[in-house]
Design a protein around this nucleic acid. Structure first.
Lengths: 234, 234
DNA sequence: TCATTGCTTCGATGCGCACCGAACTATAGA
DNA sequence: TCTATAGTTCGGTGCGCATCGAAGCAATGA
């Protein structure tokens, strides 16, 4: 028998649940109340939705004291949501597309566990331009030069290769409709950014805010030429 | 604003509509009545569903005489469905997974526009083994050797490169849970098979039936060692 | 121990929508 | 012209489910 697509799709198909799922695309685990707020429903309603999402294995839950932390179940779920975002955004009516997007989200945001948005696309372009990665159209690979470049930055490729996750992977950006870097290398870059305090993760959203100094350092480190201006206005 | 995932998902989320969509994964355009049969609903019900799918831009429709032919809208929709199939099948209860699958579908079937199933996985393995393609874990690329190999078979890489579609791409097989070849090269292989009359497309399903001679030629052409036995029993 | 906060269960309400019967339009062929 | 087939529109039915109020557990902290 062919697997039954409709079950998972109908889980995502409810507006409230899909709001929860996109909120969780930030990669951070969120509590039930946070998700209720995000989805704009009462705690009771949220509870029943979350139970369904866990039951359908879209989310995993971890209990910590009197809190319950929810996360996307696995990488492939995040990929599915991302693909849905892509398909949807390219299909939107022209009117709504240009709608009032949060400028911070456009600049830099988290896409599950790696960077997305204008900054991320600029990074991808710079890495390509400098020959660190190669965009083969159908795939993105890391070059030998890129391998040594990232090694000096402290990337442990040995550890990555033990991991079954793809090292580098292109991921279509739904706001920019251009490629950006995903995979474990994309993950490393984001973690590195945050560890270096060049940028901070917003508490209330998927947005990533660069500090002034961080922006400069980031630009220098990856040799990015045309980093777009940060629109700091809310 | 983030695009609204739930709209598309809820379209796919209805069991009847999802049956129609999976039926269309065969790549062939189907008429409204065929889809009604496939989804096991009356013509009226099918009509309303199909209108919604077209309206939601999941399908395109072509009118021909008194027939209406429906097809998946674009490649990305097919990819989305495929990803859903993957996620769903890996999540199925062990009981239902081993359920009575149509053996013909397991052997060889169409995945939108390329080959899938056991045969396809065997092909992928053989191509890898012979160094025609290289599975880099995170991506699949065609080697120089593979390029010349396929050139002698009549592949016009020039024409492909003008196309924006990826040349070769791995696609996870939901029945085998292994990679098989997608992309325009995967498409070419399927078309070539059918053109050579080594295999025929079933009229009523996504299944692909190899002729005895075709199976031998296919095995020889791509140097496949361990092609699984064809289970001809229905 | 009691109060507070986080989350769940139960029950009731009401909307949305999948479904079909019946009647209608449109195309093809004779 | 008439007949058969393909597809649509309309109206009515009924189920499913998202929603919330109220009450109930559970864990923390004082």
């Amino acid at each position: 028998m062919e697997p039954n697509i409709s079950f998972i799709s109908s889980l995502i198909g409810d507006p409230t649940r899909s709001r929860m799922l996109t909120a969780l695309m930030g990669g951070k685990a969120l509590t039930a109340t946070e998700l209720a707020l995000e989805a704009q429903v009462t705690a009771q309603t949220a509870s029943s939705h979350l139970a369904k999402l866990v039951d359908g294995q879209l989310l995993i839950v971890r209990k910590q004291g009197r809190h319950k932390y929810f996360q996307l179940h696995r990488q492939d779920i995040a990929q599915l949501i991302e693909q849905l975002l892509n398909v949807t955004s390219s299909r939107n009516h022209p009117k709504t597309v240009t709608g009032p997007a949060d400028p911070r989200l456009r600049n830099a945001r988290v896409c599950y566990d790696h960077l997305a948005g204008k900054f991320s696309v600029a990074l991808y372009d710079a890495l390509t331009l400098n020959g660190h990665i190669a965009d083969k159209g159908c795939e993105t690979i890391i070059t030998n030069q890129g391998r040594s470049f990232f090694s000096t930055l402290g990337v442990d490729f040995e550890a990555f290769s033990r991991n079954k996750r793809p090292l580098c992977k292109s991921c279509l950006d739904w706001s920019e409709r251009r490629n950006h870097l995903a995979g474990s290398l994309g993950h490393w870059i984001l973690e590195d950014l945050l560890a270096k305090k060049w940028a901070t993760r917003d508490l209330d959203s998927r947005a990533i805010s660069f500090t002034k100094r961080g922006k400069i350092s980031f630009t220098k480190m990856y040799d990015i030429e045309d980093l777009p201006k940060t629109e700091t206005s809310r």
